[in-house]
Amino acid sequence: MGGILSRENIIRWAALLVLLALIALFTALNPAFLSQRNLARIAIAAAPAMMVALGVTFVIVMGSIDLSMEGAVSLAAVLFCLLFVKLGGALLPWGWLAVPVIVLFGAFYGMLTGLVHVRLKIPSFMASLAMGFVGTGAAVMITGGEIVRIGDSTFRMLLTWRILGYPLMVYVAIACIFVALFIQKHTVLGRNFYAIGGGEELAHASGVNVRAVRIAGFALAGAFYAIGAIFQVAKLGQAEAATGANFMFVSITSVVVGGVALWGGVGGVWNAVVGVLIVNVIANGMVVIGLPNFLQDGVLGVLVILAVVLATDRRAVAFVK
């Protein structure tokens, strides 16, 4: 209908086009931008934020919002480090156990957020924001403001071991993206997220257990935050109560820039992936082309608005709140 240049097609591919245009622009200004080494650098910077963005995408698609990621990432990162050290401080023989335990913990933490939101009937942004504070507070209590370090070189291979020029972490992140895509496209849960986001009453009338799906959505998001936290620890070799700082801004911006609509039902994993790459390409590119730092925040803001304008079909909504 309408051929390749139809409105639907342009909006569908807009985020990707913005990403390609940015890459072309930065490369024209400094060819080093497109070097394999720099792409690897962008990928490393993007990997933890990518996991957090994937998680929050599911929640946003449901038409809710989750702002607990900073606390969730901090707490998961701190607990991961402590558990890892407790299990011997090396990946083998027992340190690896910390990975599934913390991912489960993340899911549990997300489930709590979901329960607070659904059972206590608190709007999701408030419930999740509060749970985020709880997470940060707990991380502060546990660490007493100190830093927990992981020195195990086997675990750090996520960052240091390179295959075809990219660290192992990047491949694991790509695998996680496929898992997220699978959940979105091929599971009942994934389809129910869209059903609820598209029209909650209708979904309910059609027999979807809206409450259960919402709680499951938050739990799934929590599991992805925990994976993000583990990547963050792999990247920095340490965790503290501030490890999750900035993830809220980066992940929500990325998801929206990628074309996921905050009112729910629109966009998905693919948009989040492109969005995270756009935000990281901008951050890296501005330094690489030598943009003065006092201009960087302003330019970031303008580029974000531009990307959202291009990537979201706002004709579909009557009003924006």
């Binding site: 400094n30 080093a32 931008f33 070097s35 080494r37 720099n38 650098r41 962008i42 490393i44 910077a45 963050q232 990247k235 920095l236 340490q238 501030a242 490890t243 700082a245 900035n246 990281n280 951050a283 890296n284 330094v287 690489v288 082309i289 030598g290 730092n293």
Partner: peptide
């Protein structure tokens, strides 16, 4: 070569350092 803020933040500093490496090698 360059002086930019990383806002006292570990993660931002890691990303900024990577970008510096691309620009100045």
């Amino acid at each position: 070569l360059d002086a930019q803020p990383a806002d006292w933040d570990t993660t931002k500093a890691a990303a900024l350092m990577s970008s510096y490496l691309t620009r100045y090698g």
